[in-house]
Every structure is written in C-alpha cells, then in structure tokens.
Design a protein around this nucleic acid. Sequence first.
DNA 1: ATGAAAGCGCTAACAA
DNA 2: TTGTTAGCGCTTTCAT
Lengths: 355, 355
Amino acid sequence: MSRKPDPAPGSRPTLEAVAARAGVSRATASRVVNGGAGVRPPLVDKVRRAVEELGYVPNHAARTLVTRRNGAVAVIIAEPEFRIFSDPFFEQQVRGISRELTAHDSQLVLLWVEGPGDYDRIGRYLGGGHVDGALAFSVHNDDGLPSIIGRAQVPAVFGGRPGWPGASGTPGGPAVPYVDADNRGGAREAVRHLLSLGRERVAHIAGPRDLTSAMDRVDGYRDVLLDADPGLIAQGDFTEESGARAMAELLARRPDLDAVFAASDLMASGALRVLRERGLRVPEDVALVGFDDMTSISEATDPPLTTVRQDVEGMGRLMVRLLMRVLNGQETEPGTGSAPGSVITPTELVRRASA
Amino acid sequence: MSRKPDPAPGSRPTLEAVAARAGVSRATASRVVNGGAGVRPPLVDKVRRAVEELGYVPNHAARTLVTRRNGAVAVIIAEPEFRIFSDPFFEQQVRGISRELTAHDSQLVLLWVEGPGDYDRIGRYLGGGHVDGALAFSVHNDDGLPSIIGRAQVPAVFGGRPGWPGASGTPGGPAVPYVDADNRGGAREAVRHLLSLGRERVAHIAGPRDLTSAMDRVDGYRDVLLDADPGLIAQGDFTEESGARAMAELLARRPDLDAVFAASDLMASGALRVLRERGLRVPEDVALVGFDDMTSISEATDPPLTTVRQDVEGMGRLMVRLLMRVLNGQETEPGTGSAPGSVITPTELVRRASA
DNA sequence: ATGAAAGCGCTAACAA
DNA sequence: TTGTTAGCGCTTTCAT
C-alpha cells in the first residue's frame, strides 16, 4: 500500500516514523528531538510520546553527516603510559577526562598505541573524521605522535607540556595547547620549604631528562638554589629503584647533605629506603620532600612524605574543557589571532612528617 | 562558474572531488577506495593518484550511514574493574581486545561506567548505533548492565560467564555469548594435583559468592572432593587480606589440614603469609595452589606459587572474534537456530614450588 | 510556528 | 568494466 516499503522488522524507527505517528513533519519532529525550541507545547508532547512509544533513538551517523560533529573524542595512550595505569596518576587523569567528556555529551574513544607501527592506523583514524578532537599525553621528546596528530589536522590538547619545538610557541610549529601542573613553581615551593626548615645543603633527585615535567622541576630547584653545587643533583628516572640509586650517589658525594627534594614520590620512597639503611633519620638528619602526592605512596611510607600535590583529575577535566573551547571556535575570534591558550594548574605543598 | 559552489577551504575533499580529478565516476572512485576489485588497472592508478594528491580520506559518517557498519566496538568497563587495571588481569584482557579489534579494523570505544546513574547514558549510546557491538565483563550478579545491553539490542559478548538467569540458556532470557576460562576444570586439576602429592585434607579458600568464576572453582573442588568436610571451605573475596583471614579460620577449624587450594593467587599469597606466621612450612607441612597465575604475585612469593594459568589476553581476543562472528551473521544460519556459541578456554596447571 | 525540500558524502543496485 | 541513480536518516534554510 505505502509508497515506501515498510521498514524491515529488525531496523530501528526513523525520524520519519516518529513524525508520521505524531502527525507532524520531519522537521518538527527533529526540532523536538533537539530540544523542542520554537515548537508549540501540544506538538512537542505528541512528538515526545511518539518517540517514547516507538523507542526512537537518533541515528548517529546521519546526524554527524550533516552537523559535522561526532560527539566523540579520542584519547591516545601510548603503551608505556598504559602500563602505568597501575600508576594512580594515569587512572586519575583518565577518570577526569571521562567525567568531563560525559558532561559534554561526548564519548571517549580509546586509541591504544603499542608502537610506532600503529602510527599509520592512528593517523588514518584521526584523519577519517571519526572524532571531533584528540587528547594525548606528552611523552618523550622523540615521540612521533605529535606530528601524526598535526598531520591529521584534528584539534588536540596535550596533557603535560610537550617537549618538542613549537610547543612553547616557536614560530614554524603550531602552538599546541596543553594542560600542565606548575612543576617549576611546585619545585620552588618544595625547596623553599626545606630552606625554611633551616636546611642548608638541599640535594635534588631529578627525573628523566626527556620529560619536561622533570626538567621543570629541576629548573624550579635551581631557581631557588641559584648557586647549588652540581654535585647535589643526581639523576633518576622516576622509579623507586632509581631514587634509591640516586640517594646512594648523593650520599657518597655529599655526606653532609641535610635535605633532599625528589622529583617524584616513587623516587622519594626509594631515597627513604636508602636513608634508613644508612641509619639516617628522616626528617631529623635528612628532611625529604617528594612530588605528585600519590597517596598510595606518600601516606604509606614511614614517615609519611611531605610532597607537592597536583590536581590530576582536575587536569584531565581541564584538557577536555580546553578542547571543547577549541571545538566551539571560541579560540578563533577574528580580532585576536592568539593561539589557543594552555593552562598551568597550581600545585600545593602537602606537609606530612618527612620534612 | 561551477554549478556547485567550491568547497570551503577548510573542508576535506570528497569522493566527488577525487572522481573529478581522476576523470571517472564517483562509483568507480568508490570501488577503488574500497579495494579496487573489478576496476581496470590504469583507472585504479589514476584514482589512487588523485586520492594521494588530494589527501582524500573517506568520510566515516557517510559510509556508516549506508553500510550500517561503524567499525567500532564498545568496551564497557565498570568502575570496580577499572580500579583493577592495576590488576594485570584486566590490562591483559583489554590488550587482547585492543589487538584483535585492530586486526579487524575496528576501534575500541571505552565506556566507563561509574555507577548505576550512568546506565541511562550507556543505554542511549549503545542504542544510538554508535557501535557495532559491545564487550562487557561479567560483574556481580545484581548488576544492571546486562539488561541495559539487552534493551539496547546491540550484539554483545561477555567476558566471564554471566551469573544472571538466561545466561546459561534459561528460556526467557536470551542466551548471551561469553568467553570464560575453564574455571571448574582448572580447579579440578588443582585439587587432583594436590591429591597426587599424597595430601589428604585439602582445604579451599573460595572467592566471592556472586562471581561465577569463583563459584565454578568451588564446584571444581567439590567435583573431586565429593564428600569434603564443609569446614574445609572458607570464604574469601579475592583479596590478599581475605585470603589471610580465611587461612586463619581454616587453621582454627582444621589444624590437621595438609593442603590448600585458593581461588586466586592474591588470596593464596595472603594464606601463605599466615601459614608462615604460624611456622608452617610450604609445601612440606601445607601444600598450596593458587589460581590465575598473575606472575607478579605467583613468581614473587616465597616459595613461588603453583597455580592455574588462564590465557587472559587470548580470552580478550576471543571475545572480539566471537563478536565479529555474530556481526557477520555467521551465527544466524537459517538451518541452525542455535544461539551464538560461548567459548570456554582451557586452563593449565603451572607447577612451581608451593605444591 | 510549521512544512517542503535540499543536501551532507557515500555505497549499491541497476543500466549501459 | 564503468556510469547513473536512488537513497541511508538527519538537519536546516526557506517559504508559508
């Protein structure tokens, strides 16, 4: 009877069906489905009821096709970080992202990069318009991810200040918006705290050289201790083990040190272990400050760690907000040719017993 | 000049543009883009070149609209499990899923459920046709997720045999395909191993009652020890702490026990701790077998744990394969009205020093 | 306030 | 083998 063949039994109802049932046009049905602004209440009601009865759910692809909005954001996680999901750090950041994305009615599409071999696939995906934007984490400087993202021309926000050129606004490379903690400021605060305690020989256990967060913390240390003996700085890699090694090194070079600022709680706990093995009391003989406030560590050590806290979940949420701002074009205002702004979130010194 | 207005500078080239540039029809261009079967080589070349020069990338939404295929699969993770990402178990399973999905040119969309309040959102998403199917994990019996997925009418595969009715093929509820390890068989093997060692009073530390995997392991234990003293079974919840408590309980009830089969390595390690505190030697006085073979635990204990291994990554991959089979309709063959099959993967006893 | 109609970019019959 | 054409389901001017 009907001109158009009846829909297959398994297929979902379309807007058309809703409109028919409500006795309105597709346009009106669409308006109602999208908020119903400018439609008279009785009609709104009719359509709503039809939607209900038919169990209508908008077809995403069709909508995307015309609106050019996907309602999805990619979160790119490279293997080394994923491994670190055990690291409360990452879990928290992803949780923040997930929550904020939900608040923006967007979905999280997880792109798991296991190696450079996956870059092609990722690039194709990003370029294919599957997602409105991407969230990535600043990994090591030599990482190829940034350029992949750049080529895909997809709006992106980084977690952590990227270390490659262009990130800081170098002409040539586009400025990438990022969200980072105030690592430098936090480090300064940690060191100043140690000085305020009367400590005079404050050592530093630094994180990996190719991580901007680690380097920023060294810079903060140096900001306060302008003329610090280079021998007071030892290199670590953010692991417990490296913290222990670095501590041993420092003790060998400067047995007279009376304070240590470690660039991560994990390294601080390693340092603490060595300190105790050597019979040095914390904080009496050596005061110790960590960084991150990973409570599973900082509250568990004996004594608990004084450390620098960063609001990791908040940083995750901020990444999303920044991205949304870019997506909504609020960054491309005609007057200001300004690049999308990055955000530095404040840190906070958390005093516990170790310093 | 042209009938259609020139595309906006920012927009991506369409198939139309590629076709025009290659001097062919859209249909031919489409054919080439999708493999190029049945198109003569010279044309294929031309089109390929045009694609290259224009940097053409197919529009996903448009393609999905007509093919009704998304190339995306949702992985639904509820908060409690996400937390367990620290659990190598989950990380491995998701890795398996991710790899297999990639092999099938599908994307992983992570749906993170923080609580029952999220069910609506999840249901809407699943129903909206954003994904071709869903992968979920069998959580506790009272979980509402299964029904959400059922209502959304989206093909799904579960990790772990669901505990709710219908899962086992109860009429009324649709049978949900799942992938699970042979928990019962593995448990039997563990207990038989203990018996083969000459042990006569084998106790069991069971996992949570609302987890089918845990209950299956109890069943396996009972299969072998038909007339076991109920006092030889103690209740745990898969945590280290609960394993310790259960061990203490067992020792109080049956000081004469000479073997323990714990339903998880974590609980086994807790039991081990208590055993040693009581001055009991493992395996001399009490032989101990765990389950899971989480090497970070089983290889680290002293003595290392004899345990039952399951191929977790493989199970993840299998979940995807099963789903793909459903998606490709290979399960709906006219003749067989059979429900999509579930898969039970074999386990393997790994002998170390504890038994 | 509502409806008619024009596409969004692509695939898949169907023709040629 | 290639091209023509008809939609997929939706949003959005533009009329009314």
